[in-house]
Amino acid sequence: MLNLMLQLQMLLAALSAFLPLVPSDSRVRVAEILDMAAKALAAGGVVAVNLDDLARKLADVRSEVEAMAAAGRVLTSEDLDAAMAHVRTASAAFRAALETAEAQPN
């Protein structure tokens, strides 16, 4: 997905290079359209990166659990403590981010 976003961004950059060839009366409008398109694409890129990130993390967890299941390994208290410490750290970071977001003006 990221490759597709990159290709689209490169296409936009290439189109921008042809801007001087556009008739001068519509050049400003075309530049505005390309600018808006670039912004929309950048926002889409952020979305793509985060979705890819979550998918990768879940795939990693699944691989780990598959390995545990295949080996018939019983969970240890260290595994459990590490997993819960991870949850607590993530939860604290989330609450801090939420507090910051709530403090921002609308």
Binding site: A55, R62, V65, V87
Partner: peptide
């Protein structure tokens, strides 16, 4: 998207997969 809980074979593995999945979701 992978479902880690579905890969678990025992109760403790299911619980572990659920906790790890939850941590990833909270980070997202």
């Amino acid at each position: 998207v992978a479902n880690p809980v579905a890969a678990a074979k025992t109760l403790d593995q299911r619980a572990y997969a659920l906790l790890r999945t939850y941590a990833a979701l909270v980070e997202e």
